[in-house]
Amino acid sequence: MTEYKLVVVGAGGVGKSALTIQLIQNHFVDEYDPTIEDSYRKQVVIDGETCLLDILDTAGQEEYSAMRDQYMRTGEGFLCVFAINNTKSFEDIHHYREQIKRVKDSEDVPMVLVGNKCDLPSRTVDTKQAQDLARSYGIPFIETSAKTRQGVDDAFYTLVREIRKHKEKMSKDGKKKKKKSKTKCVIM
């Protein structure tokens, strides 16, 4: 069974824990209790493949930012979460993405942009803004509501699919490099 290491990042209060708990335990946590770091595991079937999701729910508070490099190193894919009623959390996505790329030393890291709290009427981040940002990053965008469960499975499952595509691409690139290195030079 394939294991996928997913990391949920975003500013404090955007609903990272609520999304994760909704996926794992099928219930909505409405009281806000700032996370330092929590880890969850769940076995699911995605596109006919049974897999184990190892999900790291991270601290959004700035005082825990020193811990970010460590979990970013171990993560295979990242859910970059903002709240649709919090423009600052949307603007912060850029910083999370840049930090992930720096730590992973790669421009090509599996990510999904997630606009959470889409059940709320007080939207300050337009869907088109988020779609445009995701398009500019070359990553999928999904709106979710941890409260109603809308888009929750889709967000995590899409990230797994992005990781699969990335692994497939990397193995193809690896095979191309191996083929090239088999060419021999004969000096007579």
Score class of each variant (00 low, 15 high):
26 N>C: 12
161 R>H: 10
89 S>V: 03
114 V>R: 01
95 H>C: 09
26 N>H: 09
137 Y>R: 05
135 R>E: 08
176 K>M: 12
149 R>M: 10
98 E>Y: 02
60 G>D: 15
41 R>A: 00
32 Y>I: 04
121 P>E: 13
98 E>T: 03
77 G>I: 15
70 Q>W: 14
73 R>Q: 12
83 A>P: 15
24 I>P: 00
39 S>E: 04
78 F>I: 13
131 Q>N: 12
167 K>I: 07
168 E>M: 14
184 K>R: 05
150 Q>L: 06
167 K>G: 06
130 A>I: 13
98 E>D: 07
18 A>P: 15
57 D>M: 00
18 A>L: 00
172 K>C: 14
186 V>R: 04
112 V>D: 04
50 T>H: 09
150 Q>P: 15
120 L>Y: 15
83 A>V: 02
83 A>E: 15
135 R>T: 09
6 L>Y: 04
32 Y>L: 04
155 A>Q: 13
148 T>G: 12
115 G>T: 07
158 T>R: 05
61 Q>P: 14
157 Y>P: 08
181 S>H: 05
68 R>H: 06
31 E>R: 06
137 Y>G: 06
184 K>L: 04
12 G>W: 01
46 I>A: 08
2 T>E: 12
76 E>D: 15
74 T>F: 04
183 T>R: 09
21 I>A: 05
109 V>C: 10
95 H>F: 14
31 E>S: 11
28 F>L: 02
45 V>F: 03
71 Y>D: 11
92 D>Y: 04
27 H>R: 11
65 S>Q: 04
175 K>W: 11
77 G>S: 01
188 M>C: 07
178 K>F: 11
2 T>N: 06
101 K>T: 13
106 S>F: 09
112 V>C: 05
183 T>P: 12
37 E>T: 01
107 E>N: 09
36 I>L: 15
68 R>P: 01
136 S>I: 07
7 V>H: 05
60 G>R: 15
64 Y>D: 05
53 L>R: 00
53 L>C: 05
28 F>M: 05
20 T>Y: 00
72 M>N: 09
48 G>P: 05
74 T>S: 11
131 Q>G: 11
65 S>D: 10
105 D>Y: 06
104 K>Y: 08
77 G>H: 02
33 D>T: 00
170 M>K: 11
71 Y>S: 15
54 D>E: 10
73 R>F: 10
102 R>S: 10
136 S>M: 13
161 R>Q: 13
84 I>Y: 15
31 E>D: 11
188 M>D: 11
106 S>R: 13
126 D>T: 08
36 I>G: 00
19 L>N: 14
27 H>K: 13
162 E>C: 04
104 K>M: 08
140 P>H: 04
58 T>I: 03
110 P>F: 02
145 S>G: 14
24 I>F: 03
30 D>T: 09
120 L>S: 12
10 G>S: 15
31 E>W: 05
58 T>H: 04
46 I>Y: 08
2 T>G: 06
80 C>G: 02
173 D>P: 12
184 K>A: 07
21 I>N: 09
72 M>K: 02
34 P>M: 14
103 V>I: 14
125 V>C: 10
79 L>P: 02
98 E>S: 05
105 D>T: 09
119 D>I: 10
87 T>Q: 05
97 R>H: 10
116 N>C: 14
51 C>I: 10
79 L>Y: 12
84 I>V: 13
26 N>R: 09
77 G>P: 02
113 L>K: 01
111 M>L: 07
153 D>V: 09
125 V>P: 09
166 H>I: 10
21 I>G: 05
65 S>L: 02
24 I>Y: 00
160 V>F: 08
27 H>I: 10
183 T>G: 07
181 S>T: 08
30 D>Y: 04
82 F>G: 15
182 K>L: 08
54 D>V: 01
165 K>A: 11
16 K>A: 15
107 E>I: 10
50 T>S: 08
185 C>A: 12
167 K>T: 11
46 I>W: 07
124 T>R: 07
183 T>A: 08
163 I>F: 08
129 Q>V: 08
160 V>W: 03
107 E>V: 12
180 K>V: 13
33 D>V: 00
89 S>P: 04
59 A>F: 03
60 G>K: 15
57 D>H: 00
26 N>G: 11
181 S>P: 14
158 T>W: 12
167 K>Q: 09
10 G>V: 05
93 I>V: 07
